[in-house]
Design a protein around this nucleic acid. Sequence first.
DNA 1: TCATTAAGCGTTG
DNA 2: CAACGCTTAATGA
Length: 231
Amino acid sequence: MTPLISAERLAAIARWSHDLPEAERERARRGIVEKNYAAGSYICHLGDRFDVWTGVIDGIVKLSTSSDSGKLISFAGLPAGAWFGEGTVLKSEPRRYDLVALRETRLALMDAATFFWLFENSVAFNRFLVRQLNERLGQFIGLVETDRLLDAPARIARALAFLFNPELHPAVGLHLAITQEEIGLLSGLSRQATNKALKMLEEAQVLRVDRAGISIRAWGELNAYPMRGNR
DNA sequence: TCATTAAGCGTTG
DNA sequence: CAACGCTTAATGA
């Protein structure tokens, strides 16, 4: 049902594992199982205990929450190669948002004991964690900025820049298979608004829209959008 | 009034 | 068959 991850697969989706000495890498592997989730299904709900550090093998995971009034808020999408949840595992607290599989998704789940063992014993692992947290911090600062701009193309650009981030998601490359509907779900926009904004971004030469996917020329160009004046 | 959305449907690759 | 474009009716600012 939930088999241990193979060494090959771990190498393919976990960039961090490459930097670990063989013994540590094997120890990590034996603490990771694979699990499948159907499209649209919840991986966990806000408030749930979900004490695993999680890697995306395949598919896309959406982080979202709803306010008391029922308004939906999407944070980020996590594509293949992303690892997340270190915050909640470290603090051993309930999840602060819902996790939804946007499409058929396969996850790698590392149990908390293994995570803490690496945290206590592996220099390489900690180096990865610091780099990842630092990269995320920069992303979330940008998120606040675009939240106040409330500009549809800018919001889309931000969501896509997160997905394409080479530091966090090295597996993604310059092309990402994602539908416009999924992009809309991630950025909290309708399908029409998403389509319109994507065409504007295409017009601005920051990306190319192809069937069931998005291509970018360089991550920097996407991440820099919008470049109006000095603010 | 004008803009935006979800839903349904036709087209297409 | 799924992604996308287009139309339409509802919603609301």
